[in-house]
Design a protein around this nucleic acid. Structure first.
Lengths: 329, 329
DNA sequence: ATGAAAGCGCTAACAC
DNA sequence: GTGTTAGCGCTTTCAT
């Protein structure tokens, strides 16, 4: 639909110079005289000329496009991540080609292949696990692959992830400190690698501490699932603590605990979450939670993007406990 | 960075056919014999060939790229909108080039110009108001411009927006029905057109009903601003109703009302919001609010995208009142 | 149905 | 410093 766009040739004609003079004028480190440059700029302005980046990318082999694939983009965690990421990319002069998978489990591979067709220079995966074959194709084609909060067993792709097991340990410690005797771990039915890591680390820590833990898992990673978890898990009156592997789950769980299951938090029940999404700080919740550093995560992703060596990069970002009001002191 | 990508020429060589045969094989309605097609497909598979859409777009003048510019993408409303939109685009075979403005007020024009350089076929503006000159350039270049919840006085661009004034009327009516005598309208300091429309329509309706209204406005469109509004506005004990022009504001306002200003909702105070973001339905809030139909909004945007005539399109999407528990019955 | 050739808008290597 | 020329990977007449 470029119909209507002015070409460099037209500008050249109008300015009375050659096609290349125009090109040079718009190429940062080129040699053009002030006189020519001025003429070109004038003509370009009058005609409303814009460099065609697609054509530009065609011969210097750099599309400037960074593919971002994700799913469930309206979930606070992903939304926040995408927000930061897209700003960061833009700031570095990179464009973000966003592909939103309706279903993270299955739709991710075709999306990455689509990104190949657009010659994305790198691909950032926000959620979903790319199959081996796709990873192979990435390295074969020289496309950098960066996985967020996803760990796969390869030395040829970048991964940046929060320290899930450390976070789970912190959560466990905190619940122990709150004096809990029987706790629940709540995760969603989607069982993403990150959730699995958190769950198992938590169980392990609790086991060594001799605290009984019951695991619940089901539904999607949503407020609703958390709510449902609360309703089901808390019929057991003995439960006095819960670790929800995601804040969204925690918020739903909290609401179920308070409104449906009549627990006082943190008097009867201590709850800790994971992520520290904006809503966790809202007055109605004030959730004690393990914070992922969105900005650090983003920073490392951008770094991995720019690193010139496609070296092995497994960046583990530290997490911190943010103390609010849902765990007993 | 296409370094490593296989070209059609290599496939042709391997398949023992001409370059054009390869092209035809990958062009939907072209005439190739089954024999050739098979050979090409085989060679392509073995080599890992992918059509280069950038080059493809170069000569048939269609990039397949749809520019999406927005800001504040982690806000629930925008996140939801973007989520739906990106899925819809993908489903229609269009790619989404996302540009996130750090500041909606000022950064939007350069982003649109950048989109020109990528030869975006259309540009969807999620937030922020594009200056006249930019709009002119869009039409000059044959780039369709679609504004969401933004109304500008032009006949050559598509706009799809929720029926803000009708929504404000509904809110007013509801507050009157709740028996409010003195109400507040809360908006953010950013004063987006949508917020202004809602505020003025609300005031007008209340005026004709003879209900006193005090307006508060400040900060960004956020939970925090809503909270602050609550703290400041509710020192006036006479206020027994509030219309927050955005759910995010409403949620903050509610929390301030309940925790800080000791109001019972809806007994002492009725609150109604606007948008119906997911959090409005959470148990801790159960906000009575005017719902925008995200899906209808998205649907119309996609339609506007595909309409072959770049006719005037001002699509006003109906809103509905969703009754929950923050307005007195 | 198929190959040769021209061209999409641009950049870069090469002369001058 | 500047114009000429040759591509970048693809599609599309135009012959055959």
């Amino acid at each position: 639909m470029a119909r209507g766009f002015v070409t460099a040739e037209e500008v050249a004609k109008r300015a009375g110079v050659s096609r290349s003079a125009v090109s040079r004028t718009f190429t940062p480190g080129a040699s053009v005289s002030q006189a020519v440059r001025r003429k070109v700029l004038k003509a370009a302005r009058e005609l409303g000329y814009r460099v065609n980046r697609l054509a530009q990318g065609l011969n210097n082999d750099r599309s400037n496009l960074i593919g971002v694939v994700g799913a469930n983009l309206s979930a606070p965690f992903h939304a926040k991540q995408l927000d930061l990421l897209s700003i960061g990319l833009l700031r570095r002069g990179l464009q973000c080609l966003l592909l939103n998978a309706a279903d993270a489990r299955k739709d991710i591979a075709p999306l990455i292949e689509l990104l190949f067709e657009f010659r994305a220079q790198a691909i950032i995966v926000l959620s979903g696990e790319p199959p081996e074959s796709i990873v192979d194709q990435c390295i074969a084609n020289g496309v950098r692959l960066i996985l967020i909060n996803q760990k796969i067993d390869r030395t040829d792709t970048s991964m940046v992830l929060s320290d899930d097991s450390r976070g789970a340990d912190l959560a466990a410690l905190r619940l122990i400190e709150a004096g809990c005797k029987k706790v629940a771990v709540i995760s969603s039915g989607s069982q993403t690698p990150a959730q699995v890591r958190r769950t198992t680390a938590f169980k392990k820590k609790m086991a060594t501490a001799g605290v009984e833990v019951v695991a619940w898992s089901g539904g999607t990673t949503s407020y609703e699932s958390g709510y449902q978890a609360g309703c089901e898990v808390l019929v057991d009156e003995a439960i006095d603590g819960a670790f929800c592997v995601t804040d969204l789950l925690a918020l739903g769980f909290l609401d179920a605990a308070r409104t449906e299951m009549h627990r006082r938090v943190p008097a009867d029940l201590s709850v800790v979450g994971f992520d520290d999404i904006p809503q966790a700080g809202w007055k109605s919740y004030e959730l004690t939670t393990v914070a992922q550093s969105f900005s650090a995560l983003t920073e490392h992703v951008l770094e991995a993007l720019e690193a010139d060596e496609m070296e092995t990069r497994l960046q583990v970002v530290p997490v911190t406990m943010v103390e609010r009001k849902t765990a007993r002191r």
